[in-house]
Amino acid sequence: MPPTPPSTTSVGRFAPSPTGPLHFGSLLTAVGSYCLARQAGGLWLLRIEDLDIPRVVPGAADTILHTLDALALHWDGEILYQSRRSARYAEALALLENKGLIYGCACSRKEILASAPHPGEEGPIYPGLCRAGLPPGRRPRAWRLRVPARSVTLFDGVRGRQSQHLAEEVGDFVVRRADGLFAYQLAVVVDDADSGVTQVVRGQDLLTSTPRQIYLQECLGFPHPEYIHLPLALATDGKKICKRHGAVAVQPERGGPLIASALRFLGQPVPAELEQAPAAEVLRWGVAYFDLRLVPKESRPLSDKVPTWPS
């Protein structure tokens, strides 16, 4: 049975992947989601997204937890680990199968690339090769969700109205991978619903995934949370800051400046007198004054003045 969702009316969450230490791009999401959840008087939950086991770095989850604690980003309740929830994901997959919404797919990536009519933003659009049944002599490699020939629309807290035509822009998407692992799209939808999450704050790189998750929520009978996609911090190569660009220094005396830098990147006018304050004090300011209307709509390069990397 899934866990009982919290009874509070507002529940936010932070869901890092333990593929390395926390980096500034992830810290932006942590700070933004924390301030908005606390500002609403709600809970701030922590989920470790260790579903993709081959990419998990041993010890990374503990390092992330230590970093959050050092920066006064304290979460509520028990930590949810995706790697321990396979049985729950299997229940959701079985429900989709019983409704006739998923089907086995025998296609390899090479076959999809050869047959896809045109590429989408996140790769080839699945052309439906196995939608009517598996070819003779083929066994299913993955399981896909049938998508409707219509648009899914949402209102994002930063970028406003967003719409995606699932059939034309994505195609039937994978809910269980060829390696047997459950897909991110399915796991995150089940986790958010089971935890009672009402507010999802994350990076803009996940905005194109949201219509798929909304459709999955419809299929599974789950409510739709509020979505807020924050701008990304870009490195000098123009790509989003990630673990290859460095890790946040876990030094308590630098915690305040680091939190202040994250808030300022998100458009919040942190007073100069708080520049050297402890992390907890800067966070209290963020909770009291965070204004979603000030958050930039576009991602941009990270300033050299941000005290992010260890010296």
Rank of each mutant, 00 (worst) to 15 (best):
E275M: 06
G286T: 03
V200T: 11
L230I: 02
A40N: 14
A187T: 11
A193L: 12
P6V: 10
Q276L: 12
Y81I: 06
E273K: 09
A94E: 13
D291Y: 14
L51V: 15
T67L: 06
G133C: 13
A90I: 05
K110I: 11
L207M: 13
Y81Q: 07
L71N: 03
G203T: 01
G137V: 03
D52A: 14
H118Y: 13
G77V: 12
D194G: 09
P269N: 12
E49T: 10
P296W: 06
P5G: 01
P5L: 03
Y227T: 05
Q268N: 09
V175K: 08
Q199L: 15
A15H: 04
Q213A: 10
L263H: 02
L96A: 10
G196C: 07
R85I: 08
A233D: 03
Q204T: 11
E275T: 02
L274D: 01
R212C: 14
V152Y: 09
A260F: 00
E226D: 12
P148V: 05
A40C: 06
A72S: 15
V56R: 03
Q213H: 14
V306F: 05
D192N: 14
G246P: 13
D194M: 14
A92V: 10
V31T: 06
S83P: 07
Q82L: 05
P296C: 04
L292R: 08
G255W: 05
Y227Q: 08
P136K: 06
P135G: 00
P269R: 10
G256I: 02
V152S: 03
E226A: 15
L28N: 00
R88Q: 15
S83K: 11
V282F: 02
Q185L: 09
Q204W: 06
E168L: 09
P2R: 14
R150A: 13
L80W: 14
E253P: 14
E253S: 15
A288H: 04
P58Y: 13
N98D: 12
M1Q: 14
D205F: 04
K110Q: 14
G41F: 11
H23C: 13
E169R: 11
A61Q: 01
V295A: 04
L232W: 09
L96H: 05
A247N: 11
P211I: 13
G246Q: 04
P140Q: 13
R300K: 10
P3D: 14
K240E: 07
W143E: 04
D191T: 01
Q39R: 12
G20E: 12
S261D: 01
V201M: 02
A178R: 15
I214N: 07
W285P: 08
N98T: 03
T236A: 15
A132I: 11
V287W: 01
D52C: 07
V188Y: 04
A279L: 13
D194C: 15
E169L: 09
L93E: 13
S261W: 00
V306D: 02
H74T: 15
Q204N: 12
P124A: 09
L258R: 04
D156Y: 12
V270L: 00
T208S: 14
Q82G: 04
L283Y: 04
I112Q: 05
L28I: 01
L302Y: 07
S26L: 05
Q162T: 07
G120T: 03
V248K: 06
L101E: 02
R159M: 09
L206F: 03
R139V: 08
H74V: 14
A94T: 12
D62W: 00
K243Y: 07
